[in-house]
């Protein structure tokens, strides 16, 4: 964190960053390059997330095409700060992180690639605590090598 602050202030001082990129979160390289869910979760600072029924994952039970799997995550947990999605069996399980601010509802909809049948894990950060839910999606044709 200290390192990041130093780096970003140095860049800002050098005038290399526009307003928009200055406020963007630093891409979680270590997390996105982690090869297991456990390693990826560590980079997000998670230890022992609570399983919650206040998280809804909407996705098909069976995805015929792993290259385009629609997934929607809604969190009803108060003060939800972010939603991350992890595809447990993908070569790099951590898929995405969405941070909310200024009135964004704790809801996101996107499409994922899935290499094979896997649990899809939603990880919610709310008031500094982590909550999780999972849903298995069966994949007929994998979508990583496309």
């Amino acid at each position: 964190m200290v390192k990041f602050l130093m780096a970003s202030s140095a860049l800002a001082a050098a005038g290399l960053l526009g307003m928009r990129s200055a406020i963007a979160a630093v891409w979680n390289k270590t997390g996105f390059e982690s090869k297991t869910t456990a390693e990826a979760l560590k980079t997000l600072g998670v230890s022992g997330a609570t399983v919650s029924r206040e998280i809804q994952i909407t996705a098909p039970e069976i995805a015929e095409n792993g290259a385009q799997v629609p997934v929607t995550v809604t969190s009803k947990i108060p003060n939800t700060q972010s939603i991350s999605i992890v595809v447990d069996k993908n070569p790099f399980p951590l898929s995405c992180t969405f941070e909310f601010s200024n009135g964004a509802e704790s809801y996101i909809s996107t499409r994922l690639k899935m290499g094979q049948t896997s649990n899809v894990i939603a990880l919610i950060k709310a008031d500094g605590k982590f909550f999780t839910a999972a849903k298995e999606i069966k994949v007929t044709i994998g979508g990583c090598g496309g």
Binding site: I23, S95, C96
Partner: peptide, 8 residues
């Protein structure tokens, strides 16, 4: 900013 997103 309402959403700050990181993708893989």
């Amino acid at each position: 900013t309402v959403l700050d997103i990181q993708w893989s």
